[in-house]
């Protein structure tokens, strides 16, 4: 398969971009698509806390870290690289990627480039679209409305939004639904991927003691997020033959003893 780079970012902090990155990593894992992640929140990355096995903390403004990410795209056994861009640095990061020829390479089709632009509820987020759009002409551009932290997007009137949205012809709308606050908080405290919490496991893979109700909320939320990403055609864009993981089978209540 062709390598793919998924960039997740926003020009405003607190819009839940790391949550979307975590959801994307879970989504890819559910489709048996191995991924690696780069957390640009140096020195302590939030994404790294939840997915330490596959996440490196990098500074994309440093040439050495740019090389760590981009020069290994072809060589890496894992073909999907997700970059969680530090809050407020989306435009700057895109400018860096343009300057080093990354965007041109994407245009040439050397790899697939997916840009997840997480929008905040303020009207300023709409202006961000205009700033980001020029960088996204050769990307699969996703505009993500994130309700996970209960944003209401009350400042947006439909016409204003549509006008901004229309400026980016190839953009796809994605809505991340709200997750119950307590469930979100408990996953945060557990510091594990959403799927691990749902499956009632600790980070080490041992049985956990998570609430059934909270696991249920996480399960339903993950299912809804997956539906959104499916509808947006993310898997098709990645150009991989994915095979969704089988749903866990119900435990057998009783197992017949084998007879010799």
């Amino acid at each position: 398969m062709k390598p793919a780079v998924i960039l997740v970012g926003a020009d405003k902090g607190g819009v839940g971009k790391t949550t979307v990155s975590r959801a994307l990593l879970d989504y890819l894992d559910e489709h048996n698509i191995p991924a690696r992640a780069f957390d640009t929140e140096t020195p302590r990355g939030t994404l790294h806390r939840f997915h330490p096995d596959i996440t490196e903390i990098v500074d994309v403004t440093h040439t050495s870290d740019q090389m760590r990410i981009l020069d290994t795209l072809e060589d890496a056994s894992v073909k999907v690289s997700l970059i969680d861009v530090r809050a407020g640095q989306l435009s700057a990061t895109l400018a860096v990627l343009r300057d080093i020829g990354f965007l041109d390479a994407a245009k040439e089709g050397e790899f697939n480039f997916l840009l997840f632009h997480i929008l905040g509820s303020s009207i300023a987020s709409l202006d961000e679209i205009a700033e980001t759009a020029p960088f996204a002409t050769d990307a699969h551009y996703y505009l993500v409305k994130n309700y996970v932290n209960d944003s209401t997007f009350f400042e947006w009137d439909p016409k204003t939004y549509q006008d901004h949205f229309d400026t980016v012809k190839s953009a796809t709308d994605i809505t991340i639904p709200k997750l119950d606050e307590l469930a979100y908080e408990q996953v945060d405290l557990a510091a594990v991927p959403f799927a691990t919490f749902r499956d009632n496991r600790t980070a080490d893979g041992d049985p956990a003691d998570n609430s059934f109700v909270l696991r249920g909320y996480v399960r339903t939320w993950m299912r809804n997020v997956a539906e959104e990403l499916d509808e947006a055609g993310v898997i098709d864009t990645l150009d991989v033959k994915s095979k969704p993981k089988a749903e866990p089978k119900p435990r057998l209540k009783a197992r017949a003893k084998s007879r010799k």
């Binding site: 307590l182 469930a183 059934f212």
Partner: peptide, 13 residues
């Protein structure tokens, strides 16, 4: 309240 839901459904199952 989510706490109330946990107090009940976690025990119902």
């Amino acid at each position: 309240a989510t706490r109330g839901q946990i107090d009940m459904f976690d025990r119902l199952v």
